[in-house]
Write a protein that binds this DNA or RNA. Structure first.
Length: 260
DNA sequence: ATGCCATCCAATGGATGA
């Protein structure tokens, strides 16, 4: 089974690039971030026509996440628990019916947090604390689960082409990185990093200042696997070439293949 | 030291992003 994450930066703007990538990469399940659409406006027919079930958790203008799946989805849940006043659409999860060993797939768009310090950074750290609670629940249940998406965290200096440029940024500040480690240290496996230990592995290149041409990237989209899913991990990768095509998102897809 | 560019909403400019 192939699972992927892709921050598309607007479904309307990616209405050609996303189906093109789906056709060639053929993931069984993909979680999307920044659909920037309300549920009613999401062009679900396009993806249903490609064989995907569509579950969205949208909001007007910003944020918004979705799951596309060729396999049946059960127990679909929208929104990260822990704060009823949180209006931002950044979390969706569902259990993928993969036969004998179902997998709970959590698609997340973690808050950016800039400028830091400030209320946006506080929201980011609070959101990460709530996510840690949800991960602890799933671990306690010994579920097979994957948390994949745009974490907006550069875990280590090796995850940035120019780490010195990110000092003081909410993506690289010590508290945000520590919160990421607290989750990882519960026993989650960073699927790409365990297979690609070296530098130069990125998932995002800014539209500005020729970041793509200069390979000035950062690795902020992650596939974090539960212990049981890590046991099943066969392959992991980043579809970097997508960034060089017409009308690209500033992020590229990240994927894993796990044993049935 | 800041903007660069892109997207969306709504209206020729502002907010947001990373």
């Amino acid at each position: 089974m192939k699972l992927a994450t892709f921050n598309i930066n607007g479904i309307k703007a990616r209405i050609e690039a996303l189906p093109a990538w789906l056709a060639e990469a053929a993931p069984d399940v993909v979680v999307l971030q920044e659909i920037k659409s309300v549920d009613e406006a999401f062009p679900r027919e396009v993806f249903e026509g490609l064989g995907y079930r569509v579950e969205t958790h949208g909001q007007k203008g910003f944020n918004g996440v979705a799951i596309l799946s060729k396999l049946p989805l059960n127990d679909v849940r929208r929104g990260l628990p822990g704060d009823d006043s949180d209006e931002q659409a950044r979390w969706i999860e569902a259990v993928v019916d993969a036969g004998a060993r179902p997998v709970r797939v959590c698609g997340l768009y973690l808050p950016n947090g800039n400028p830091a310090p400030g209320p946006k950074y506080d929201y980011k750290l609070g959101w990460m604390a709530r996510m840690e609670v949800r991960i602890r629940e799933m671990l306690a249940a010994e579920e097979h689960f994957v948390c994949l998406g745009d974490y907006n965290v550069i875990p280590l200096a090796v995850d940035a082409a120019k780490p010195e440029a990110w000092v003081g940024d909410a993506l690289f500040l010590p508290e945000a990185r520590a919160a990421f480690r607290r989750m990882a240290n519960l026993g989650l496996t960073d699927a790409v990093r365990v297979r690609e230990p070296g530098p130069g592995v990125y998932t995002f290149w800014d539209y500005q200042a020729g970041a793509w041409e200069r390979n000035n990237g950062i690795r902020i989209d992650h596939v974090m696997c539960s212990p049981q899913v890590a046991d099943r991990l066969e392959e992991a990768g980043i579809d970097k070439a997508v960034r060089g095509r017409d009308k690209p998102s500033d992020h590229v897809p990240v994927w894993v293949r796990i044993a049935a």
